[in-house]
Design a protein around this nucleic acid. Structure first.
Lengths: 153, 153
DNA sequence: GATATTAAAGATAAAGGACTCTTAAAACCT
DNA sequence: AGGTTTTAAGAGTCCTTTATCTTTAATATC
């Protein structure tokens, strides 16, 4: 698995916040419901992202979480690094500590290229651009369909 | 982390076997020493690869493990799938079960491309080619330097 | 057949990931 | 001021991964 579960949830929360028209605080339980994950667990993940300066939170009524900075200045690789650490973008694919140009492993060259493409996937688009695409192209970030969310009895 | 530790060890063992000039059975404790991992733990991993038909084993004196098939017909992606499962090559990067052309996530297009490159890294070269390169270009697959292995007091 | 060597099998355990639950703290509303 | 809504914080559970140790079974060699 490329990303940890926590990282998946963190990214999807960020994408959800970026796709919301009004930039108010969104309660965590609303996001948790949408992602199909316990609000307590999600709280822990988002709390960490808040401490890392990626999100901001507000307690009490009308509270919740929101992006800490402008979506035009936030990219997904920050979230990956904040939760899973930088290893994915830096380490040898075979886990060899001193793999590099001097002592390359047999996959070094190819992994360097693939790694670059993976990093580009997380870093080329800002959350603003991603949020716009999610709205315009109706892209999927929720576990449940939006219809079942609105028409729930 | 792209691969589990077990998968890293499995791949490095396969690369080591492919780089050996004589294709005899190699005792697991020798490989474990070279990789810096407990032979018992490595035994478990290689036992699984044996059950999967990727390696073969022999007990007793002059026993050990060896590749089950010709190195020209073995590629690393088989080992990845045998140990970590096919998820890396098939699943949505955000873990969404029904992500696909019909319901794409915001990263679907880019991850499909990156995933292809990752798969190519594990599938384009055979173990025969990799083994030859390891020898010719003195590529690194061991934790300890080969000199410290030979000159150990 | 005895012996040494080796993988196989199984018991155990430490560490981390993935969660759940409870209580506290803050903000808001009346 | 008091009650309600919401996140913050922390303890605790369950499961998987990683790893070690011990015992057993197989086998080549003498």
């Amino acid at each position: 698995m490329l990303l940890s579960k926590s990282c998946e949830y963190g990214i999807r929360t960020a994408l959800y916040l970026a796709s919301q028209p009004q930039k108010e605080f969104i309660p965590i339980h609303v996001i948790g419901e949408m992602l199909g994950v316990s609000p307590h667990f999600l709280t822990k993940i988002l709390q960490h992202l808040t401490q890392e300066g990626i999100m901001q939170s507000l307690r009490g009524p009308r509270g919740g979480v929101a992006l800490a900075r402008s979506p035009s200045e936030l990219r997904l690789h920050e979230i990956v690094i904040a939760i899973d650490g930088p290893g994915l973008f830096t380490e040898c694919v075979l886990g060899m500590p001193d793999c590099g140009e001097g002592q390359p492993c047999p996959l070094h060259e190819r992994w360097s290229q693939a790694r670059e493409q993976v990093f580009a996937m997380f870093s080329e688009l800002t959350l603003e651009e991603l949020g716009r695409r999610i709205v315009e192209e109706n892209l999927r970030i929720t576990d449940v369909t939006s219809s079942s969310l609105t028409r729930n009895t």
